[in-house]
Amino acid sequence: MTEARSSTRPSVIDARGLSLTFTTADGPVHALSNVDLTIEKGDFVSFIGPSGCGKTTLLRVIADLERQTAGTITVNGTSPEKARLDRAYGYVFQAPALYPWRSIASNVALPLEIMGLPKAERLRRVQKNLALVNLAGFEKKFPWQLSGGMQQRASIARALAVEPDLLLMDEPFGALDEIVRDHLNEQLLQLWAKTEKTVVFVTHSIPEAVYLSTKIVVMSPRPGRIHDIVESDLPRGPRPLDIRETPEFLKIAHRVREGLRAGHSYAD
């Protein structure tokens, strides 16, 4: 259902007939089946779909944390492995995954240490990104001293600190309250508009997906596949929060909801 849209922007992610079947003790699990997807540079793409439809799995294949069992995929025109070795992306996991023995600042600095950045630069990026997620002043705290939502924000700061051109975010705002979520949605959109990053974003929230995205990928489970791809005609770049009350917005949200309903089979 992709609209044939002639584009001059290079594709960052290109998946053709991508399938992934997990072999488990109780038989094969078809996590992804025949996925075709193109993500262009500067796109903000959301994956939305019911639990278990393969959103995380697709993100992990892009990140070379999982290998497909059929089909092809390129990231930045090369294999996902090559892209990972080039440190082409930053990944925000579904859980914060902070190291408990590191303070918040030192958790955010972890990738920077591994990349071998000088100390002053590490410090600058840590300060900047903690401030961005409103965690300034919590540098010296340890993860267990922070709430779940604050931990998740720290993990977002950690991914942003790498300053990658491609951001892979797996339900980054799932653990946050509505107001903080709105705020971070706005911040993320501003950051994206400012830096021409490509963002791949997993969410369960229709308004969030529509507010953020230039393209919404609606997925359905068993086997995990793409049910619909909705191109957003909302303006690119920073959007005011109250765009969510406009008819254009509601029309897109409606189409996404219909897609989710149709893909959601309660029969099994």
Binding site: R84, L85, Y89, Y91, F93, P111, I114
Partner: peptide, 9 residues
């Protein structure tokens, strides 16, 4: 935690 390290190569 191991995957995180892997994403950083």
């Amino acid at each position: 935690h191991l995957d995180l390290m892997r994403t950083y190569t």
